[in-house]
């Protein structure tokens, strides 16, 4: 059973389709990266999954069933637009939002104290939300998101506004939650974070799917037939190399269509060049994002 099954959903405002025939699944125990440029329809997709917005057509199932108010208790949602009651204390805020997810006061208090301790924020539990720094508020917001021990966690721009220490803390918590078997959907513009944490990704642009799958199978498709080499000696002209790009210590050699990396390695050995590093160049997710979205917008 998938944690999330989205089938051909469509949402339009007037004549403009914000999400257009989008389908994807999210498995238990995986971090699923939802990426796309600004205005691609990520937040609208998430809001439809949360039943905050109704799709015009299509079908969404959470844990194999249509979402109801009570099954919302299975989901933890951290929206992009953060918000807590400024005048409430940290502990009261957490308990109130936990109660709306069906958790009794005693249990939510115990869990809140455990999570606050994990985030080294227990001494702040009686402070009002308005007295906290932005980063601390973000951490409280995350605790509110997971206080009810949800099976599906949706995080919209979770790292926005966090310092490196809190970013690392959040990454650790996300990884722990994945290891506990929870499904995590993470939407962010920070491609390196998606690359670091996600098992699979969905890239959307103008409401449509443009990339979908696990990164290990996506990345090879976007290789540009180049090799990173660290060497000693003089390269000179090499058959099959169309361009050389120097990056710090390594040099990226762009190969023509007929030349394979094995043929290049043979050429280098024959020329007597001492090769210290020879690595097939793989594009980063950021590069793939720019390439795919760029092509879409051309």
């Amino acid at each position: 059973m998938f944690s999330v099954e989205v089938q051909h959903i469509l949402k339009a405002y007037g004549n403009r389709a914000v999400v257009n025939d989008l389908s994807f699944n999210v498995n238990q125990g995986e971090i699923f990266g939802l990426i796309g440029p600004n205005g691609a329809g990520k937040t609208t997709t998430i809001r439809m999954m949360m039943d905050i917005i109704k799709p015009d057509s299509g079908d969404i199932k959470i844990m194999g069933e249509k979402l109801t108010t009570s099954s919302k208790n299975e989901i933890g949602y951290l929206p992009e637009e953060r918000g807590l009651y400024k005048k409430l204390s940290v502990i009261d805020s957490i308990i109130y939002f936990a109660s709306l997810k069906g958790v009794d006061v005693q249990t939510s208090r115990e869990r809140a104290e455990k999570l606050l301790k994990r985030a080294e924020m227990l001494p702040h539990k009686n402070k009002k939300i308005e007295e906290l720094s932005r980063g601390m508020g973000q951490i409280i917001q995350l605790i509110v998101t997971i206080i009810h021990d949800p099976r599906l966690i949706i995080l919209d721009e979770p790292f926005a506004g966090l310092d490196p220490v809190n970013t690392q803390l959040l990454k650790e918590i996300i990884t722990e939650l994945r290891n506990q078997g929870k499904a995590i959907i993470m939407s962010t513009h920070r491609m390196n974070d998606i690359e670091e944490l996600s098992d699979r990704i969905l890239m959307i642009d103008k409401g449509r799917m443009v990339l979908y799958g696990d990164l290990t199978s996506i990345k090879p498709k976007y290789r540009n037939n180049s090799v990173l080499v660290e060497y000693e000696g003089e390269l000179g002209d090499i058959d099959g190399v169309t361009e050389k790009r120097v990056h710090n210590k390594a040099t990226e050699l762009m190969l023509d269509a007929k030349t394979t990396p094995q043929m290049l390695l043979g050429s280098l050995v024959r020329k007597g060049i001492a090769v210290n590093r020879f690595e097939l160049s793989t594009p980063s997710l950021n590069e793939i994002f720019i390439k795919v979205v760029g092509e879409e917008h051309e």
């Binding site: 809001r47 949360m50 039943d51 905050i52 108010t69 919302k72 208790n73 989901i75 949602y77 929206p79 637009e81 953060r82 918000g83 807590l84 009651y85 400024k86 939002f97 709306l100 997810k101 509110v144």
Partner: peptide
């Protein structure tokens, strides 16, 4: 609540009618 963005958190737990 709209200005402080609490609304979306609430709507992730309850229906608009509730």
């Amino acid at each position: 609540e709209k200005e402080s963005r609490v609304m979306e958190i609430l709507l992730s737990s309850v229906s608009p009618q509730q």
